[in-house]
Design a protein around this nucleic acid. Structure first.
Lengths: 225, 225
DNA sequence: CAGCGGCGTTAGGAGTCCGTCAGGACGGTC
DNA sequence: GACCGTCCTGACGGACTCCTAACGCCGCTG
């Protein structure tokens, strides 16, 4: 279920968006201002953000900058003004798309789908990853090993997803920590080691000598298909 | 037509260079001192600069600094003295290659061609570098040799990256040490030799007779694609 | 021919990073 | 209020990386 964070200070719009998105199967959370939006994003890791530019406490660009500091989550900007200046500024600040209020719900939903699809290219290309005796179905959130289901905690999922999404490429510990744990956890390497260990125990045939979840000492980890 | 700026206060040398370069199809302009060299470079944007270090008005490093302040144009240094100190200083200041007077015209032309050729894809980053049997993927942080993975330590990566980033250009030991080990390690040349040796052992077919990680005695190292 | 400086290589110890285990805190459910 | 799963912290061997020192080699110089 796709997690989407709606940031808007007008309850009417927030509620309308929530209802429509829930009806389409999204997992919706809302935040009424920039500060709570950043806190919410850090704790629940949405896969896409809908951001109203007219917030009471922060400028829209500041919110985007706060997100871009640690995550590449796609951001869809909502603007009350049709004038194009703030649109350019928002896109410059790192937004991914733009919709002007009043907006057609259908158009917003279409752009949202597009953003999610674009942000998960490998997820769309490889929804299922096959290892020797383990099958990982990213879309269905399911892992089987020798036919039996394997249970993964949310954090384990998030970490595994981050690794599988870039097969063969080294992911630095700083990047993994920022993506999975959010900002402020850049120094919690012990945590990372712990969860990599758990994933290996659940997925690798010989956890002591991993063949797919590889360590690059001093740099990070790499998923080898 | 490639624009070349020749900076030399000796008319004989300037004329000889002009004739030879024009014969090869270069668009040549000359400047007899540092001040006019900078003015000429600013107005005509040469694609490569040949710079004599023994100018009457400015030190060679000042000229290079004046260029580097606003352009990355490759600079080939001409040095009158075989004493290597001024050459090292010029290279540290940002020069890309050097030739000692008296020089062979053929050698100078060859080095000039190399500099122009390598500067052509300026700004474009090269994520993967192919050697004979070795592939270096900077983005994925991965090296393969005859299909097998080659493991590099963080320091080896850092050094290799610094060399690969300036193909064909000479990197002084001081520059490499400062980039990889940070300030304060300018005197640890033993360290540099050690890691260059390790890279050669891992990447070169004949580590004793390297073909890509070349030594310039007294100067530094050069990556030859 | 001896002396010298720069380069390449080897070996060993100090320090850092990694994997693992156990224990406690937090939040949600019944 | 008790239970359970999940998450985080700290501590400990072990593996890896890094740096230093020393030696042999080569080209150059006096």
């Amino acid at each position: 279920m796709t997690r989407v964070l709606v940031v808007d200070d007008e309850p009417a719009i927030a509620r309308a968006l929530t209802i429509n998105l829930r009806a389409r199967g999204y997992d919706v959370r809302t935040a009424p201002d920039g500060a709570r939006a950043l806190a919410e994003a850090a704790s629940h890791k949405p896969e896409v953000v809908v951001l109203d530019l007219g917030l009471p406490d922060m400028d829209g660009r500041e919110v985007i900058a706060g997100l871009r500091g640690w995550t590449g989550v796609p951001v869809l900007v909502l603007s009350g003004r049709s004038d194009s200046l703030d649109k350019v500024e928002a896109l410059d600040a790192g937004a991914d798309d733009y919709v002007t209020k009043p907006f057609e719900m259908d158009e917003l939903l279409a752009r949202l789908r597009e953003l999610v699809r674009r942000a998960a290219p490998s997820g769309a290309e490889l929804p299922v990853v096959e290892l020797e005796s383990v099958t990982v179905d990213l879309a269905a959130r399911r892992v089987t090993r020798d036919g039996d289901d394997v249970h993964l905690t949310p954090t384990e999922w998030h970490l595994l997803e981050e690794l599988l999404r870039h097969p063969g490429r080294l992911q630095t510990q700083a990047r993994l920590l920022a993506e999975v744990w959010g900002p402020g956890y850049e120094t919690a390497q012990g945590n990372l080691r712990l969860y990599v260990g758990q994933l290996r125990k659940k997925l690798e045939r010989e956890p002591a000598r991993p063949r797919h979840l590889l360590t690059e000492p001093g740099m990070g980890y790499r998923f080898e298909p």
